[in-house]
């Protein structure tokens, strides 16, 4: 259920995980973002390991904000969307940069959503929003738990709306997720969030 009470301008970053069936909702989200959206977004989507090109371009076409595949130790800029590159895990590093790694696959995946979510939770603590979309495995469930443990906000795509609901379902089973929303409401949430930051700026 959509709840305005969860909105706050304390957040510093957003992290989104998705797998099978997540391309449609993620493009809907990226195309619905307001141009002024102030937070960095980390995107970890399961993808073909050996196809380096094409994916970031496909997302960029739809996205209001710039989507990029970061290099190792690239510094994090507000309003950018960072997509985990093929065959690398992507972590948020302390000190506002991104680390890549070729560690073993996690949940049969590289990039693994758990890794991105956990590292982001560690860096941003309660100032993080985690969003988990459609998918056919359980990657991300543990990461969502970490976000919750550190006081962050957790959202999943409503399993009823998902092409494959295993992934958000797994998160709902292991963690008390704050909100289960349709993609439309996720977008609405982000738009409302953006508004709060504007209010803050006007007051200063």
């Amino acid at each position: 259920m959509f709840s305005y009470s969860k909105l706050s301008n304390k957040y510093k970053a957003i992290v989104i995980g998705g797998s099978a069936g997540s391309f449609q909702p993620i493009t809907q989200i990226l195309s619905g973002l307001p141009e002024s959206f102030p937070l960095p977004i980390f995107l970890c989507l399961h993808r073909l390991k050996h196809v380096r090109n094409g994916f970031v371009e496909a997302l960029s076409i739809k996205s209001v904000k710039p989507v990029l595949e970061p290099h190792d130790k690239e510094s994090i800029k507000r309003g950018n969307v960072y997509l985990a590159p093929a065959n690398y895990h992507m972590s948020v590093e302390l000190g506002n940069s991104i680390s890549l790694s070729t560690e073993e696959m996690v949940n049969n995946s590289r990039p693994s959503i758990d890794i991105t979510l956990e590292s982001a939770a560690f860096s941003y603590k309660d100032k993080l929003i985690g969003i988990l979309l459609s998918g056919a495995n359980k990657d991300g469930a543990l990461g969502m738990k970490r976000i919750k443990e550190r006081g962050g906000l957790t959202l999943v795509q409503d399993p009823e709306e998902c092409t494959i609901k295993t992934m958000p379902q797994a998160a709902l089973e292991s963690t008390e997720i704050d909100m289960s929303l349709s993609t439309k409401d996720i977008v609405k949430f982000l738009v409302e969030l953006d508004r709060l930051y504007k209010v803050k700026h006007e007051k200063i």
Binding site: K73, S91, E93, S99, S101, E103, S119
Partner: peptide, 9 residues
């Protein structure tokens, strides 16, 4: 070493 991966190791 990069903290994020070192910690996981």
């Amino acid at each position: 070493y990069a903290m994020s991966s070192f910690k996981r190791r």
